[in-house]
């Protein structure tokens, strides 16, 4: 399987705090990789580094073999990295359709083609009936879906999902889990951060564990679940 993403000794420092500490990470095409760790472990910071929202303090990032360590965020989106934001960032005064359209324009410069593509994504996300509603009128569940929809509009090779299931009721959560599977089945590589163990264990092919910015474990869901370091990290220090 060709490698989609690789980081080498990826590091980010905030003042005196090392939020991401020399992390070696790799994801292969078509994988779902779960990224877990206690609050403040550095998961979102890791996403921000990979997507280009934050500059690295050290280390390197490769996407499909190409170094992107210092590429600006918009360039990485062009290359095929899509992301959602844990603190959701809809375009509040645009409609749901327009939110997705903005992303759709990247691959479809003509308005007509972009609209058609956006409509397809909305349908897939179950958001069609809200197409004309303003994004700020959506509920939390709706906004989380909109986050995914907007990232999907880029037709990304790699999709970074930051807690898109947390906070949903069980029915909604199951819908989103199903969606994530379908996205993967279309060939998109997914890295997802999630606190709900049932979800992450069920979905991930492989899991990487961070605490205090360091990678402390990596493996299949059963391997990670039985790893004493991981259990300690969740129970002990925090």
């Amino acid at each position: 399987m060709p490698e989609v993403l690789r980081t080498e000794r990826l590091t980010r420092v905030f003042g005196g705090l090392v939020a991401v500490n020399e992390v070696e990470f790799a994801a292969e095409e078509g994988e779902i990789v779960g990224l877990i760790g206690p609050n403040g472990a550095g998961k979102t910071t890791f996403f921000n580094l990979v997507s280009g929202a934050l500059r690295v303090s050290g280390g390197r990032i490769f996407f499909q073999g190409r170094e992107i360590t210092h590429a600006p965020a918009y360039r990485r989106a062009e290359l095929g990295i899509g992301r959602t934001f844990q603190v959701m960032k809809p375009f509040p005064r645009l409609t749901v359709m327009e939110n997705v359209l903005v992303g759709a324009f990247l691959r479809h410069p003509s308005r007509l083609a972009a609209e058609r593509w956006a409509a397809e994504i909305l349908k897939m996300m179950g958001l069609s009936e809200f197409a004309a509603a303003s994004a700020r009128s959506l509920t939390t569940a709706g906004r989380k879906r909109l986050e995914i929809a907007r990232a999907l509009a880029l037709n990304p090779t790699l999709l970074l999902l930051d807690e898109v299931v947390a906070g949903l009721n069980p029915v909604e959560a199951e819908g989103t889990v199903e969606l994530i599977r379908r996205i993967r089945d279309r060939g998109t590589t997914i890295i997802m951060v999630e606190h709900i163990m049932r979800v992450i264990m069920g979905l991930s092919d492989r899991i990487v564990v961070l605490t205090h910015g360091r990678k402390i474990a990596e493996g299949t869901p059963p391997q990670v679940a039985s790893n004493p370091d991981v259990i300690n990290a969740y129970l002990g220090t925090h």
Binding site: G126, F130, S137, L138, T139, G142, R145, V171, G175
Partner: peptide, 11 residues
């Protein structure tokens, strides 16, 4: 299963 986000009002 479709779980449309409830409580939103389309314009």
């Amino acid at each position: 299963r479709r779980t449309p986000p409830s409580g939103s009002h389309p314009a």
